[in-house]
């Protein structure tokens, strides 16, 4: 599996997203820039300029029309995927840590940071999936997290629930219409932040990645734990592969704890686990720093990882992968 190395960012990666057909890859980083790439050959399509702070999160709608982004400059922006034009800016009191479109691209959620007396919130906007349409300023919903701030959030099947992961290691289920907190479950060790949540293709279950070195599979319906994957490093990201029952995990010791010895270089690994049997299948080395984000091609042809080292590595699965049971 020979990776394509995408060199376009000058600082550490924060999130990667594939389009629905898997042809294009979006990446954002702390260098305030969003990049779009052809996943097949790694050629850069373009960049999206405008944010005045580190980017934390991006998402592309299912029709590859609109791109949403959240950043440390306290804004969420909406972009025309084709022209790269910024078509909407929403302002907030604090940084935006996560954005995600729902299944049909008609709603957008944003997770805001808790800071300077402002509590962390999850905000929902109604979206018109058309680049020329006027987008509303009005918030369809505001959920305030007064217990522990949300760090990540995602939409369930039928946009019925919003699932949030918290700083304290717990997972919440909110009614996506009323914003009512339906359930909260201490999925991970107490005070071990949840760094990523990614939904299954049918959005009935999701995978979490936490600093407690575990990734867990939970039901979106009732937050019941389904599977768990034990690693020996703190995790930043977890993704589910379609077609094959695998999960891809990314993480690594924070930069401070890692020695700068040559023998460790390039040894930060993406880890593959069997989704159902929970055992480790293999690792893919290459990054020079912890993996901050992993994403899988929705058609299951490959995956991409973004590292603290500023690189995106795009991998295309080969024969051995498909042969593995």
């Amino acid at each position: 599996m020979r990776p394509i190395l995408l060199q376009g960012h000058e600082r550490s990666l924060t999130q990667i997203k594939y389009t629905k057909d898997g042809d294009i890859l979006f990446s954002c980083a702390k260098d305030q820039i969003i990049c779009a790439w052809f996943s097949a050959n790694g050629e850069r399509l373009g960049t999206y300029h405008g944010h005045q702070g580190a980017l934390w999160s991006i998402d592309v709608d299912p029709s590859t029309t609109l791109l949403a982004s959240g950043a440390a400059d306290n804004t969420v922006r909406l972009w025309d995927v084709r022209t790269g034009k910024c078509i909407k800016v929403w302002d907030f009191n604090t940084a935006v840590k996560r954005v995600e479109f729902n299944e049909d691209g008609t709603k957008l959620l944003a997770v805001t940071e808790k800071r300077m007396g402002f509590l962390g919130t999850i905000v929902v906007f109604d979206i018109v999936p058309d680049v020329d349409a006027e987008q509303t300023n009005e918030r369809a919903l505001t959920i305030t997290c007064d217990e522990s701030k949300a760090t990540v959030a995602a939409w369930s099947y039928l946009s019925k629930y919003i699932i949030a992961g918290h700083e304290d290691g717990s997972v919440s289920q909110y009614d996506a219409k009323t914003g009512e907190l339906l359930d909260n479950f201490q999925a991970h060790e107490v005070d071990m932040e949840i760094k990523d949540i990614q939904m299954s293709p049918d959005r009935t279950y999701f995978i979490t990645a936490s600093k407690d070195k575990f990734a867990k599979l939970l039901s979106a319906r009732d937050l019941s734990p389904l599977k768990q994957y034990a690693t020996e490093t703190s995790l930043n990201s977890a993704a589910l592969t379609p077609k094959k029952p695998f999960v891809v995990l990314g993480g690594g010791q924070a930069a401070m704890d890692v020695t700068k010895t040559s023998s460790r270089q390039g040894k930060f690994e993406a880890r593959f686990y069997h989704k159902i049997f929970e055992d480790e299948i293999g690792r893919v080395k290459g990054h020079f720093g912890p993996l901050n984000t992993v994403a899988v091609d929705p058609l299951g042809r490959g995956y991409a990882s973004g590292g603290e080292d500023g690189y995106v590595r795009v991998h295309h699965f080969e024969g051995a992968y498909w042969g593995f049971q």
Partner: peptide, 16 residues
């Protein structure tokens, strides 16, 4: 494990 998982998916699909 596999059959349990399949059953789970089946159940979920029906409920959805």
């Amino acid at each position: 494990l596999l059959s349990e998982w399949m059953a789970y998916l089946q159940r979920e699909r029906e409920e959805v």
